[in-house]
Amino acid sequence: MSLSARSIALHMSLIAILFILCFTLSDYHQGNLARILVLATYAIGYNVLFGYTGLLSLGHAMFFAAGLYGLGLPMHLAGLAPLPAFVIGVLCAALLSALVALLALRTIGVAFMIVTLMFAQCVFLSILYFGTWTRGDEGFVIPQAARQIMGLDLTDPTTRYLAALLLFSTALLITARIMQQRFGHVLIAVRENEERTQMLGYDVFRHKFLAVVISGSISGAAGAAYGLLFGYVGATFASVQYSIFPLLWVLLGGAGTTIGPLVGAVFMFYLIDYSSGFTNAYMLIAGVALVLLVLFARSGIMGEIRKRWVPWLP
């Protein structure tokens, strides 16, 4: 089998397994997995920038929140239908990421991390400041009656799972395709050696700009879907914690691998879910995991597997 045929087979069988799991899992795990699929989509978006382009953002929660509030506010305040609201959510995230890219990409390395962190903090504080409409920390609920698309009830667990799977598969296949094309190869070249890529005549800024916009838009789509599928919009999703999570998932699953984001999100979600059963200090796990990963396993689970056993892994 050729390389791309293998990767298509891998992705298709992953999607098929996830589809089958929908009908075999218990209600509790089905609900969890639906949530994980949306969060893994967020991680896929993050991976485009961090894993493939080598830009470490500490502010992706602002893109997630742009999608979440871009969908939530028109539905909550103006009673907009879900589909146009979803489109608005993704557009908000795309617009915000273009703006952030124009400013933040003037910096590199540590400064890029801090600038993205600070822009995200501005977005978070703005959500609190405009509490009259956003209801701040408390957030607001999108009622069941509003979460209907063409007769499909998105509050029904099975429909919700399948919608989450649709979102995840779309993001997975799109990014996998991008990374096999010339554009994706240039992104990886930027990650490996920016000066050399520049010298070979590629427009590095344009590629990095598009990477931020693609990454931000996918994260925004995940945010919008989260609001639509789980019916809650709140400022927590814009906080620093939600910028750290995708970094953690991608690091754990394997940066620069297509299915790493899902693997990382599954592991971390269940680890935190399990530990929050007996302590309220569940973020301790996240802290320990971050330190251990950066010390001992920079390439994450799928990265190690690729290194040791399966060199063709996309």
Binding site: L56, L58, G109, V110, M113, I244, L247, L251, A281, Y282, M283, L284, A286, G287, V288, A289, L290, V291, L293, V294, L295, R298
Partner: peptide, 18 residues
């Protein structure tokens, strides 16, 4: 520089949650 930022984020959560 970049690895230490990620590590100190981890240390932040470890200290805060402890």
């Amino acid at each position: 520089p970049e690895a230490t930022i990620v590590a100190t984020i981890g240390i932040l959560y470890i200290m805060q949650q402890t």
